[in-house]
Amino acid sequence: MHIVVCIKQVPDSAQIRVHPVTNTIMRQGVPTIINPYDLFSLEAALAIRDEHGGTVTVLSMGPPMAADSLRRALSIGADRAVLLTDRFFAGSDTLATSYALATAITKIASDQPVDMVFCGKQTIDGDTAQVGPGIARRLGFHQLTYVESVETIDRARRTVIVRRRAEGGVQVLRSELPCMVTMLEGSAVVRRGSMADALRAARADVTTWSAKDAGIEDISQCGLRGSPTVVRKVFAPQPRKEKAVLIEASAHDPVHMAEATIDTLFAALPGLNAELHAAAAR
């Protein structure tokens, strides 16, 4: 089995700040992490490799420093890492990103055919959940999103059975390799990685490809030029005209505080009192 896992390096959302005057995101000094959702996919891929044998290649598109995330994936247990980095990729939206990644996967497959591609359910910065389906479409792979678990893989028949989260239930799907899978969060406990993997990762080379190295011929499909969407404006939400009305009550007298609050709510929402009584009587 040869499995490619797409991981994105993202700023740690817990530590990001917005510049109060310019309304831009202040990225300087913000630590980066592997997109948390991608780790569940990495774990699923490693589990399949452990059971069936084979190779897990991690792939990322980003600035040179994204190599850190790839090295981290190697320390968790991935076998090979490829970084796509080129100024042509700057400003890519999801369509352009899926083009670059799918082309790189085709190139990776020319050495060793790819049976499965794993993507995260979504990223915490782009947060679109589109890149995975985009890659599947471009590669002509079967698309299996929101997967809770990969149940069985029959390598001889090249079939795969997964449980997929749908609205109102779980679909059990049988599909074929090659396929693109996105895993649901919480689908597995992500392993820590062994000491041996950590040592290997420290020494390992991350293969770095430019657009040309990755076999990308049509630069106009990359970066800003290849992105049909444009960000028109970034802005802070409008505050409501009036700020919240403070409920006057002594913080030292919880009973009074509660009574004052309930009086306020009942006055503000006519009918609430009656509805609550009706519901309570049921």
């Binding site: 700023p11 959302s13 990001i16 700040r17 917005v18 309304n23 995101i25 915490i124 910065d125 947060d127 049909p228 969407t229 444009v230 960000v231 028109r232 404006k233 970034v234 802005f235 802070a236 939400p237």
Partner: peptide, 13 residues
């Protein structure tokens, strides 16, 4: 959009 307090307007022109 990312960052905790911003919105962005996106167009497909």
């Amino acid at each position: 959009t990312f960052g905790g307090s911003l919105l962005c307007t996106i167009m497909t022109l």
